[in-house]
Write a protein that binds this DNA or RNA. Structure first.
Lengths: 204, 204
DNA sequence: AGATTGAACGATTTGTTGAATATTCAGGAA
DNA sequence: TTCCTGAATATTCAACAAATCGTTCAATCT
């Protein structure tokens, strides 16, 4: 069994190298198989198909990112507002830089989000869990006020409101500074709202 | 001069019929010309090109929509919150229904937003003017509280936050009821925020 | 003159064909 | 038996050819 896992990671490592070097479309299953000293057919005993290898890599990648986010959400000496801020900005910067620096990542992101829409939902759901924690903290400390609906719903709404900053270069040509400025504003809107508020209880 | 305008509207009407019947790609300039009993070449004395006819049609359409929005924003006996709500929902419903009922509209929207990105900006800027008016009303009545930045910026942020609901079926397969539910939540988030608020001053 | 035409041009799209490649599976090795 | 192979098959892709269509402009009409 551990045997089987080893082979899987071997395949994944080979595919990672090929994908990042030549791109998803330009690497063939035969090449990955050769890199692993096995036949193309054998790959299919470990992964249902080529796309599943890419999805597996993306999953690993995202789980690392999730840990990072979880750490930001746990920062003990920060206000909930600051932690929410850090979360949303980390999300923006990560995807922006990833797509900017690595055209291959862009290619794979496009393909996966087209062929595997559930994957995007899975990522959203996982990030939402972290947002929920921050919201609950904020509520417990009295820093936030309940809006009546369950926090999960509130987290969903936050995600809907920052949707524009998810794959930024997919639907606008804005630069990172401009995007950060906008996100800053949306963040403020989300936290403070438009209605009159109590004089800030967020003293240090 | 009025003569020239007549010919333009004749062309536009012919193109409208063709576009909505066969789609943008499947209607040829020659066909539109024939419908107007003129030669293809003559069309170019009235429009720089095919895409400009489509853009003109979209402009007319949007201006009608803008008037509708302006009326909603002017409703005298509604709170600013309600008017903002009406505005955002009207926007969602219009685009959703338009793209749902008329696959041709979808085609044209895609082409224009690809080939003429300024057009999308122009639409946003015009809607923003209306949002600004509502915000100013809300501030004047004390229903909203200034966040320190100019209302134009605030309006921009609102638009950023509801971006997901602009061409809904472009980046999600959600149904209209589900989208409305989400927009409802985002709207609440924008208006009330997460921070503690004064007990509602919006009594009737 | 100015307005209009429609044939001519070049860009874009469409259709087709052959090669490249993902996937399968009958068979062979361990 | 279980694991693996590699040729066979089905799908996708790329390149080329043909046709279509947007656009132009010299010639024609009013």
């Amino acid at each position: 069994m551990a045997e089987k896992e080893d082979v899987r990671t071997q395949i994944v490592e080979a595919a990672k190298k090929r994908f990042s070097h030549f791109g998803y479309a330009k690497t063939t299953m035969a090449e990955v198989a050769t890199d692993c000293s096995m036949s193309p057919g054998n790959l299919y005993r470990f992964f249902p198909g080529k796309l599943d290898i890419a999805e597996y890599i993306a999953t690993q990648d995202f789980e690392k990112h999730l840990q990072h986010l979880a750490a930001l959400a746990d920062a003990p000496d920060k206000t909930a507002r600051q932690r929410l801020h850090d979360l949303l900005f980390e999300e923006l910067r990560r995807t922006y830089n990833k797509l900017e620096s690595d055209p291959r990542a862009y290619e794979i992101a496009l393909i996966i989000s087209r062929e595997r829409p559930e994957f995007a939902n899975w990522m959203l759901a996982n990030e939402r869990k972290i947002i929920v924690k921050v919201l609950e903290d904020g509520l417990r400390q009295g820093e936030f006020q309940s809006c009546g609906c369950p926090v999960e719903k509130t987290a969903e709404m936050i995600q809907a409101a920052v949707m524009k900053f998810r794959y930024p270069q997919l639907w606008s040509k804005l630069t990172l500074p401009k995007l950060e400025q906008e996100l800053e504003g949306v963040m403020q809107l989300i936290v403070d709202g438009l209605s009159p508020r109590l004089p800030c209880p967020e003293a240090a």
